[in-house]
Design a protein around this nucleic acid. Structure first.
Lengths: 150, 150
DNA sequence: TATATTATTGCATATTTATACACTGTTTTC
DNA sequence: GAAAACAGTGTATAAATATGCAATAATATA
């Protein structure tokens, strides 16, 4: 039973190097004396719950969910950056204008940020209304949003 | 520019249904009037940082890193369950016996749990030593480990 | 110990995913 | 406003991944 020894090495390897494919991993392991095929690695990866993530270079690489934690909000930030046109306020409503069709996804993004004092959001096609609980918090929320897109 | 509207729908869909493949997603979107090919979805999935996870049924499905958070330690638990033979103590050292070859991965797993008062671990082939900082904490750590495998 | 059961793996291949290239529409620059 | 630079997408296909089946090894059972 050398399954766990192999899986242990796999975890080690994906932390140390940029492993782009399962074949990659198979070759590397072979170089370390662990003889295994891509098929088995596919099964190992499923068991270990490894995921394919984009590395800094834009290439795909294997990683763990844990280490991808950080980049969770990267998605949201990217979406904001690319689709928000303006942020404004009308009393306790923050009004966000987006490029056409992007309001829904910006709304979900804001929801997922779970900012304090945000009561909820509603999105049309190119506009999001963010309901703020306290008038005093409006500025802070706007600042936070600006911070994200800069 | 309907990219963001589409991506928004994609996020919605993978939360509502078990989307197994990109083709799956393409067909579903088509049914909703959003005409798109698998190639574009591949690109969307990269941008949205979606991942392929195993659903309850053992099948693959697409999901977000966020929602996979919970299952982080599932991997460790599974490994423990399958490879630990016994847990014992010698003064401030917790001694874990595993099936041959599995000690390394159990060691990493314990490290990643970041339990309080665990100074460090060292693993051979079928044995892990866990150095505990305080004698009083040994029992608690052993209990925690037992809890994991039951 | 012999037999039955289960787990692990490779091989071959079907399925799935990523991408080079070309085309179109949009934005920027001069 | 024309030219240039860029973003988004489909098509076709290369590349990568998952899996049915069969063989083998490990484990449990009688």
């Amino acid at each position: 039973m050398k399954k766990y020894a192999r899986q242990s090495k796999i975890l080690e390897l994906i932390n140390e190097r940029e492993i782009e494919t399962q074949e990659d991993l198979a070759v590397t392991l072979k170089g370390m004396g662990i003889d295994v095929t891509q098929a088995t690695i596919s099964r190992d990866i499923k068991e270990l719950r490894l995921i394919k993530v984009t590395s800094n270079t834009g290439k795909y690489k294997y990683g763990t969910i844990e280490e991808s934690q950080n980049s969770i909000s990267d998605r949201l930030v990217r979406i904001f950056k690319n689709s928000i046109i303006s942020i404004d306020a009308a009393l306790n409503i923050v009004v966000i204008r987006t490029i056409p069709g992007a309001a829904q996804i910006c709304g979900s993004a804001i929801d997922s940020l779970q900012m304090t004092d945000v009561g909820g959001t509603i999105a049309g096609d190119d506009t999001v209304f963010v309901a703020v609980r306290k008038l005093e918090s409006v500025d802070e929320i706007i600042n936070n949003l600006y911070a994200l897109i800069n």
